[in-house]
Amino acid sequence: MTTSKTPVPLNRTARAWRAEPLANSPVDFHRSLPGYAPTPLISLPEEAARLGVKSVLVKDESQRLGLPAFKILGASYAIACALSERFGAGEVLRLEALAKRLDAEAGLSLVAATDGNHGRAVAHVANLLGLTSTIYVPPGVSEAAKDAIVAEGAELVELNLTYDQVVAEAAKQSGPGRLLIQDTSWKGYEDIPQWIVDGYTTLVEEVDEQLADIGVDRLDAVFVPAGVGSLAQAVVHHYRSSKHTPALFAVEPDTAMSVTAALCAGRVVPVDTGDTIMTGLNCGTVSEIAWPTLRDGIDAPITVTDSQALAAVADLTDLGVDSGPCGAANLAALRVLIADDELFTFSGLGPGSVVVLLSTEGKAANPQGNGNTEGTANREGIQR
């Protein structure tokens, strides 16, 4: 066993904090999309036994509505909400209804900044609606990821800037005929990021239904990749407004610890980021709308190294789960927690615990981060 070398901010009141449920669930909208089906919730009994808990369950987002990541849930819902509002509709219109109305509005385009999956999702929905799109990317995005964005019909613009700077540039390039669909927020730009967050709720609503289907009535911990914090915001809001009150852990690379820094400082503070194979999590600033929810509802952040994430990718592959580094980082974080005395005691996990890991992408979503590694390197000596 080990003790944390870097202090981890622990919120001992997180599980008691409560949020108001969403007024409108996005599930019905997502069910109307072509090809919709709940993604699998996969049990890993070997890993549960190894780690000394009852169940480890992986929500596998490697195939979501034809794309290799969960981002399409937020992008599709936010685009539908934004366009429905633009047309003065009193409800969120389905894509086929929006496409008909868009026939009369020539020249509208969608704009986004991305390090891969969000931009591809925006481009995919734009293509479904018959719209053009422009996607801005920083250095480090793989050629395969860029090719996938272009294959969706988007114009791709590469900028030699950090991710946060690319977001700012995309915002500058947007306007009345160029609608910005971004998953981070700032003062004056909150509605679309919030709709993206709301769209992600479908993922955890599916988890609840799948747990009930297999007769599981308790949930002890959920691990979620952080990035700018949008998915983490959705997960925290959901579980702090539902019957389940699990411990919630935000997972991020040790080279991009924006959530950890914010929780330590008590406010959003930009951090310098370094290279990481977890490209979707390489974000230096927490979304402003996510911050209050993360501050009050996250039990703790957990950082992982590239080697730990790669080991988890390899082990999940051996167990039949398609997970890229951002998704596999959750398994790496669970291993870090189990191996750390303070975190393990704080978590309350034990032999009867049920743990859900939100694997947000398949390997196809992040081709440069899936190299070979010693998959069993972090397995020994962590069972309690």
Rank of each mutant, 00 (worst) to 15 (best):
L203Q: 05
D208M: 10
D322L: 13
G66L: 07
A106M: 05
G227F: 00
I298G: 06
P351D: 13
A309N: 02
R86Q: 12
I277H: 00
G229F: 04
Q210C: 11
L294D: 12
T293A: 12
D147M: 07
A250T: 09
R379A: 10
E288L: 14
P351C: 10
S43Y: 05
Q383V: 15
V8Y: 03
S353K: 02
A247Y: 04
E206I: 12
R94D: 12
R218W: 06
F29M: 03
L316N: 05
G352S: 11
L128P: 04
R86E: 10
L337S: 05
I277R: 00
L102C: 09
S241H: 01
S84A: 06
L331H: 07
D318Q: 14
R94V: 09
T255Y: 01
G381K: 06
D299C: 15
A69V: 13
L156W: 02
V321K: 02
I214V: 15
A106H: 03
V58S: 05
A69S: 11
A14R: 10
A250E: 04
H118N: 02
W17G: 03
H30C: 05
F249M: 05
G352Q: 13
L10C: 12
K243G: 15
A49Y: 11
A151L: 01
V167K: 00
F346Q: 15
G362C: 09
G375Y: 00
N372Y: 14
N330E: 14
K172C: 11
A89T: 07
E61N: 09
I214H: 01
A290F: 02
G52Q: 03
S241V: 01
D254H: 06
D115L: 11
F344S: 08
Y77K: 07
A97H: 01
V268D: 03
K54N: 13
R384Y: 07
S242E: 02
V167I: 03
D147Y: 00
R379N: 13
A290K: 00
A250C: 13
T6S: 14
G74K: 02
P193R: 01
H124A: 14
Y36T: 09
L349V: 07
D60Y: 04
W291I: 08
L319M: 14
A171W: 00
L294A: 11
V8S: 05
V251E: 11
N330S: 10
R379T: 11
